Amino acid sequence: MIGIIGAMDVEVQAIKNKMHNIEEINYLDSIFYKGNIKEKEVVLCKSGVGKVNAAIITTILLYHFDIDFVINIGTSGGMIPSQETLDIVISDRVIQHDFDTSYLDGPEGLGIYSQSDKSLGDKIKEAFDKNHIEANIYFGDIISGDKFVGDNSLIKDLREKFPQAIACEMEAGAVGQACEKFSIPFVVIRSLSDIVDKDNSENDFLKNVEITSKRSADMVESFIENLA
């Protein structure tokens, strides 16, 4: 069974539109949609925005369902100036950029790192190539924190601390850490709604979130269809 987690209603609805035989299940006032995509059994849920919400929903999901692996879907902001909206990012590692005990622990205290499953990332890339999607695809580190990244000073600080980051968002780091605790493989696939250091990134996010949510859902559907 595949677990799929999105942060917002628009992200979850884009996946739900791909599902059939849907059954709604309620745990702790959280709705889980159990059904099928391309004959594969999936459980879809909304975390809400932020790392605490993401950690809670991932824990409930993995405790109550027999999940083989987790896909965290939706939108993110691009960290590479040459990126364009609608480009696709796939996680190598996810990093909680706002975890910082470096004052006490030195450089090792900066960030919590969780490793994505490489084979899942490779299969998503195969689905991307097979479907000839008109976008660029990036593999790399996705950074997470409990703040929308739009301020120039924050962007500069994050680039200095995490120069390898390809995208930023607000949930994936917590999803990854919870999955590691349960020894469940995970991967993050996001479509870029904005590029953080381009003008009007907040407005770009609001304008593009529905389009990028659909793009992310299309990628997940293609990936599931290509599973052996």
Rank of each mutant, 00 (worst) to 15 (best):
F128E: 04
Q83W: 06
V89F: 03
G121C: 14
S116L: 08
D129M: 14
D105P: 07
L110H: 06
D87F: 01
G106F: 10
N72V: 09
L61C: 08
E126I: 11
I90H: 02
K118R: 15
G77L: 05
Y103I: 13
N72Y: 04
S91E: 08
N72G: 06
G74E: 06
S116V: 00
S91L: 01
G109D: 12
I88G: 01
I80E: 01
S116Q: 01
K123E: 12
Y103F: 15
D105C: 15
I73G: 00
D66S: 10
I60C: 11
D117C: 11
N72W: 01
Q96M: 08
L61D: 04
H97T: 06
G111M: 03
I56Y: 13
E108K: 06
D129P: 06
T75M: 05
G74F: 02
L61M: 15
F99A: 04
H64M: 00
T59I: 10
D68R: 08
I71R: 01
Q115G: 14
F128L: 06
Q83I: 04
V94H: 00
G109Y: 02
Q96K: 04
E84A: 12
S102E: 13
T59V: 11
S82L: 14
H97Q: 12
H64G: 10
I73T: 07
I90D: 01
K125M: 14
M79Y: 02
Y113Q: 07
R93D: 12
P81S: 15
S102A: 15
D129Y: 12
Q83L: 08
G74C: 09
E84L: 13
K125N: 11
P81T: 13
I112R: 00
T75N: 09
H64L: 03
I80H: 03
N131D: 09
K130C: 14
K118Q: 14
A127I: 00
S119F: 12
L61N: 04
E84T: 14
V89P: 05
H64V: 12
V89W: 00
L104F: 15
I95S: 04
L120V: 05
D105G: 08
S82D: 13
H97V: 07
I56K: 05
S116H: 02
Q83S: 04
I73D: 09
G111A: 08
V94N: 00
G109F: 06
D68L: 07
G111I: 09
T59W: 08
I90T: 05
G78S: 12
I88R: 01
D100A: 09
R93T: 07
Y63V: 08
I124W: 07
P81H: 11
D92S: 08
L110W: 11
Y113A: 02
T101C: 02
I71M: 11
E126P: 03
V94E: 04
D87C: 13
S82G: 10
G78H: 06
I95T: 07
L62D: 04
Y113G: 02
Y63L: 15
S102Y: 13
F128V: 06
G78C: 03
D129A: 14
